[in-house]
Design a protein around this nucleic acid. Sequence first.
RNA 1: GCCACCCUAGCUCAGCUGGUAGAGCAUCUCAUUCGUAAUGAGAGGGUCGUCAGUUCGAUUCUGACGGGUGGCUCCA
Length: 644
Amino acid sequence: MDNYQVTLPDGSTKSVAVGTSPLDIARSIGTRLADDAIVSRVNGDLWDLSRPIEGDAKVEILTTKNADALEVYRHSTAHLLAAAVLELFPETKLGIGPPIDTGFYYDFQREGAFTPDDLEALEKKMWEIQARDLPYERKYTEKQQGLELYKDQPMKVELITERAGDVFSEYTLGPHFIDFCRGPHVPSTKKIKAFKLLSVAGAYWKGNEKNAQLQRIYGTAFFTKKELDEYLAKLEEAKKRDHRKLGQELDLFSIQELAGPGLIFYHPKGGIIRKIIEDWMRDQYLQRGYSLVYTPHVMRAKLWETSGHLSHYAENMFAGMELDDAEYRLKPMNCPGHILIYADKMRSYRELPVRLGELGTVYRYERSGTMHGLLRVRGFTQDDAHIFCTPEQVEDEIVNCLEFALDVLKCFGFEQYEAELSTWDGGASGKYDGTPEQWDAADRALMKAVDRLGIKVNVMKDEAAFYGPKIDMKLFDALGRKWQLSTVQFDFNLPKRFNLEYVAEDGKKHQPVMVHRALYGSVERFFGTLIEHYAGAFPMWLAPVQVAVLPITSRMDEYATKVNKELLAAGFRTHLDLRPEKVNMKIRDAQMQKIPYMLVLGDREAEAGTVSLRHRKHADMGVKPLAEVIQMLRAEVDTKAIVV
RNA sequence: GCCACCCUAGCUCAGCUGGUAGAGCAUCUCAUUCGUAAUGAGAGGGUCGUCAGUUCGAUUCUGACGGGUGGCUCCA
C-alpha cells in the first residue's frame, strides 16, 4: 500500500503516503498548527506526533487548547525530571511518573533523600536537557531484550515482567536516557516551556504499604510561563483561605497540644457557628420524618464484639477501659447504639421506615500522620442517622437521603461537588458481606435514586464497604483536595449480627434493610470546608458576629449601648466596641474579623436616632433609621437560611 | 504508622559558621474624644517544643520523644 486516506482535523480527507506522521499532516495544514501541536489522536487513540500512521485513519491534532494534550505534556515533563535525576544521581532507581490533576510526579528510589536544594539543582538540569531539544523517540523492544536492557532498574523489570505481551515500547531521550513507557509524549523536550518542582514526599511502590517506600517528587507544568505563574499565585491565594489559618485569625477553634492531636476546641465564635449548623440539621431531621435520639459515648466491649467492630475496626478504636463489671469502649460509630434502640421492642411493618438520627460524637484512633485541621480528626460529631425499612421502601428512602444531601449543599452555598457510587467486585474476592441478590438490589436502588435526581456519579467498582454499597458526596478544600462529606450506605451486615427483625403483613418476621447515612459527614469536617468555602466571610445567618456597633467617641457610648440593646432584642449577634480608639481602628478590626455589618455612630446619628451603615464588602451604605436597618438585616438573615 | 521538612514572646517572624535572645502586632498603663481599614508614649512578657548526649559552654551540633506541614497508606 503506497497511499491511504486520512480524515483531517477539519473533516476533509486526504490521500497520504506511507510513513506519514500526524506532524507531517499538521505541517501540510499550516506551520502555526505544527507549532502548537502537542500530540495527536489517531482513530481515537492518543498517538505520538512523529509516529507514522499505518493505514486509513482519522487524525486529530491536539494543541495547547486540549486537556488530554496537557496530560501528555505533563507526563513528558515527568520524563524530563527522571532524565535529570539520572544525570545528577545516576544510582537512582526509577518508579513511575504519571500526570495528575495539578501537574505530575515521578517516584524514585535512592539512598539519600532529595533536599530542597536538590530540587533546585534538578530544575536547572531539566532546563539544560530541555535546551538540548531531544526528541522523545519511541521504539519497540522484545521482552527478553528489554529485561536485559533494564537490568539495573528493578521496578522497571517488575513492570515489564507483568506485561502480558512480549513486546513493549520504550522511549529514549537522547543517547543516555531510556524509560519503559506506554506514551505518547510531546515530540521534543523543546516543547516543554514552563514547569516547577514543588515538593518531595514518601510514597509506597504500587501504593502498597508493605512495599518499599519511594521518594516522590511532585511538580507542575503548563504550556506557558504565564499559566504557571497564575497557578502558583492561585496556590498562594488559596493558602490564605486555609481553615486552619482562618480558624486562628478569626478565633474559631484550636487544637491543643496538651489535650492531644485531632481533638477540637471550639472557641466562642466557632461554637456559635456549630450551634447554628447543628440546630439547622436537627430542625431538618424533624421536618423530614426522622426521630432524634441520644446514645452513650462509652459502651461495653461486648457490644462492639457483637457489632463486629472489635474484629474489623479495633485498630481505629481508642483502647478499652477496664471497669468493675466489664471492659468499656469509646464509640467509634453510632450504628450499634441506634440498633439497640430499634431492637428494644418488636417492630411492625406499619411503623417502618424507622429513621433514628443523632448528632453523635465518636472517637476514632486515626493514625498519627493522617490528621488535618478540622478535616481529619480523632473526635468528631456525625449527623448520623440509620434508616430501618422494608425492601420495598428502600429506593424512596435513598432518594430522600440524596435529596436531603443536595439540599444541605445548596443551603450552605456549595455548588461544586462530586458524587461517587461505590460498588462491590461482583463477589469475586469473597471479601464482601451479603448475598449477590442483596448487592444487586442495593446497587439498583442506588442507581435508580441517582437517575431520579439526575445526579452525575462516578461509579467506583470494588470501592464499597465490606458491608454494602454506598454513595458519597465529596467537596473540595481551598487547595482542591477532595473530602468526603455526605455518605449514604447500605448495611447488610449489622441487621444480621444483631438479628434485627420486623413483623410483616404475612405475620412473619423479616429482616429490615438498614441504611446508614451522614450528610455533613462530620460537623467538624463540614465546618472546615465551610470556612474555606466562604474564606471566613460567613453569610449573615452563619456569621458569629453579624453587626459591629462602633461609636466614634465616648460621647456616643450611651447611644451605642442603646442601639446594641435593640439589635440584641431583635435577635442579632453583635459586638459593641467601646474602646477609646479612633473609628478607623474599630472599622479595621471589624473588617479583619469579617463582620458583615458595621454601624458607625457619631453625634449626628445620636441626635437623629439613626445609624450609619457599613458593609464589610460594599463599604459605606449611608445613614438610615435603625428600624429600617434592623428590618433589612433580618431579611438578609432569613433569605440565606433557606429552609428547603 | 511511613518518608521529607518545620517548631524562637499570645500572633507573624529576625537571630552568619556554638558564648543563655530581638522586631512588629497583640496585652497592660497613661495621654488623646478624633467621622468609614492602624493616635502617640511607656511597661510587662521567652528555662528558644520536651528530655537526654557532645562541649568549658547549646536556641544553634547529635539522638529520642511531642506537636505541626506536605505527601503515602487509611478514612467522616
